[in-house]
Amino acid sequence: MNKLLFFILLLTTLSNAQEPILPIPKQSEIDHPKAKLGQELFMDTRFSSDNSTSCLSCHNVYEGGADSRDVSLGVGAQSGDIHSPTVLNARYNFRQFWNARAKDLVEQIDGPIHNPVEHNMDAKRVEKVLNESTSYQEKFQEIYGVQKILYSHFVDAIVAFENALYTPNAKFDKYLRGEVQLSEKEKEGYTLFKQNGCITCHNGINIGGNSLQKMGTFKEYKTPKIFPDRSFITKKESHKNVFKVPTLRNIALTAPYFHDASAKTLQEAVETMSHFNLGIRLSKEEVTSIVLFLNTLTGDTPSILESH
């Protein structure tokens, strides 16, 4: 067994010439009718206790899928406790939420729906809203073949929509596929991204979103406010300030940055990150190059949003 393991190891090491970042597939299998229904639900404020808040309220899918506000406002204009992460390409995250407490999108939906400062709803009330709407009844009847719409149908439709929220054809993806060349500065930025260790956390298809990491690995990151970090889940002291590594896809569109929304620009975010997590101070030129690289990560608007 050990010999086999060694052999496999050898093989993968040799073939490790490929980049640690993967492009998003141009096309993914999407259940279009369900996704369209999910889109409608996603944008419907009736699924909040005061008809004020929809999913879209905090995840503007037309502009990066996140919230430009530091923290989102839910029902009764109450503030959330953390900056909204983007919903775009969320399907590629290994877990959901900043502290990775939901294993997938299905589990994730319960969070904001039930959160008293977000939608402040429960399954029963969601079902009531759905079943009182003739339009929804017709649509669910058509798609799910049910007379009575259940919460699980509601979740399924929204997940179908969220799965459709992928952004292919970023310039960098095209570069990875060998379709385009990066500018010199962009390429330099990518090299710096790798050479300075950003890549150790931001890798894979979502350039992040596949592991947890401590904010302030190198130097302690102090905030005046306590955020629901990983230690809220694991109750481990060492997991203070540990969050899911966020995706860098469409990063140029999702300012402000970090869980605390402390970085308002990409420059600022790169500088903070390199200082606290890499223990380095990058030159202005280096930061610029990296930001140029990060700008190549903006992909197409999800096709679901363009079709009607």
């Binding site: 640690p20 890798n203 596949n210 592991s211």
Partner: peptide, 11 residues
């Protein structure tokens, strides 16, 4: 063992 790599497979 490697300097850096895609961690998606681990997840």
């Amino acid at each position: 063992l490697s300097a850096y790599q895609n961690m998606d497979p681990i997840a």
